[in-house]
């Protein structure tokens, strides 16, 4: 069985275990690349120069992947990506982080939200190569940070989720709000989350959760 497969069975998800698992995902991202895989034919190389010369001979005319250094949840990591890859795609398929979700892929739903240099942005609309040198915070980083436990707790206590698919996008937007405005009003919560769509209609519970979290965070 492939090695990075999640086997969640028999795990009890508590605030602690979920936070630990998020932290483990972040810790598991290698700082530097040791293998360079050709995205076209799957061939692997030990150095980037070898991959580039493979491209020149085997895939002439194709744009070779590039090595980008992303600053994710406070740590630098090298990724090998094609220039047109979005940050969302990179997070999932290169870094194993699936907290940012793909719902619309058009910048409409907010499910893929991450925080970049302090602002909530849509990772499906950002080219990964453009994110170099910028501070990227994902839901996994927020969940792994004990400071934000009250926000995670409040989301769980208030069922600010049904199927849970959009939830992380809302939570990241909520965290970005609280960074800027630790004591938001209900209307400010609603406005901050206006870019997130929940098909399951959980809307009223988000402000409830954020207001409770804000009271505990101060």
């Amino acid at each position: 069985m492939p090695s990075n497969v999640d086997t969640a069975r028999s795990v009890t998800f508590t605030a602690e275990t979920a936070s630990d698992r998020a932290a483990a995902l972040i810790d598991g991202i290698p700082v530097s690349l040791t293998e360079y895989r050709c995205p076209i034919c799957g061939g692997t190389f030990t150095g980037y120069a070898d991959l580039k010369s493979h491209y020149a001979t085997a895939h002439e005319g194709a744009a070779a992947p590039v090595v980008a250094v992303l600053t994710l949840n406070g740590r630098n990591c090298e990724v090998l990506i094609e220039p047109h890859w979005t940050l969302k795609r990179t997070l999932q398929f290169r870094l194993g982080l699936t907290g940012a979700k793909h719902m619309c892929d058009k910048g409409v739903c907010g499910s893929c939200t991450v925080i970049m240099d302090g602002r909530a942005v849509l990772s499906c609309q950002m080219l990964a190569v453009e994110c170099e040198g910028r501070d990227i915070e994902t839901i996994e980083g927020i969940a792994a940070n004990p400071k934000w436990r009250p926000l995670i707790d409040a989301y769980c206590r208030w069922d600010a989720m049904q199927c849970g698919y959009c939830t992380t996008g809302f939570l990241v937007s909520a965290k970005a709000l609280l960074d800027k405005n630790p004591n938001p009003t209900e209307q400010e919560c609603r406005e901050a989350l206006a870019g997130n769509i929940c098909i399951c209609g959980t809307y009223p519970r988000h402000a409830q959760a954020i207001l409770e979290a804000a009271a505990r965070l101060v």
């Binding site: 009890t12 998020a22 982080l97 996994e140 969940a143 769980c156 069922d159 992380t168």
Partner: peptide, 10 residues
Amino acid sequence: KLSYAIAAGI
């Protein structure tokens, strides 16, 4: 029972 996993992005 699964809420913390959802909220934490795992």
